[in-house]
Computed example of a mutant assay.
Amino acid sequence: MEQKIYEALKWASSYLIEHGRDANAGELMMKHVIGVSRSALLARLHDPLTQVQSAAFSKMVKHHAEGVPVQHLIGVEEFYGRPFIVNGNVLIPRPETEELVYHTLEKIKGRQSPVIVDIGTGSGAIAVTIKAERPDASVYAVDLSAEALQTASENAKALGVDVTFLHGDLAEPLIEQGLLVDVLLSNPPYIPAGERETLSTVVVDHEPHMALFGGEDGLDLYRKLAGQLPVVMKPDGLVGVETGAGQTKDVAALFDSAFPNGKTSILYDINKKDRMVFLYV
Rank of each mutant, 00 (worst) to 15 (best):
A141H: 07
S138E: 15
E98Q: 13
L42D: 12
E147T: 08
E27Q: 14
L42G: 11
Q112E: 12
D274N: 05
A152K: 03
L212D: 09
K263S: 14
L225A: 03
S13T: 12
V181R: 06
E96H: 00
L184H: 01
V68F: 05
P48N: 13
H32L: 01
P208V: 10
A125M: 04
G124P: 00
E207V: 00
V90A: 02
E147W: 01
I108L: 09
G124F: 03
H206D: 11
I34R: 13
A137S: 13
L159Y: 05
A146S: 14
V202E: 15
Y102L: 10
R223I: 05
R223G: 07
S58H: 15
E154Y: 00
T164S: 14
A152L: 02
G168Q: 00
Y222S: 04
Q51M: 06
E2A: 07
I92P: 00
P192E: 04
F278M: 11
F57T: 06
G240W: 02
V36T: 12
A43K: 09
R82V: 03
H64N: 15
A253E: 13
G168C: 07
I5K: 12
V277Q: 04
E133G: 07
D118F: 00
A65M: 02
A252K: 02
K234Q: 10
N187E: 02
H46C: 06
Q247S: 03
E197Y: 10
L100M: 12
K249D: 14
K10F: 14
Y80S: 01
E242N: 04
L219G: 08
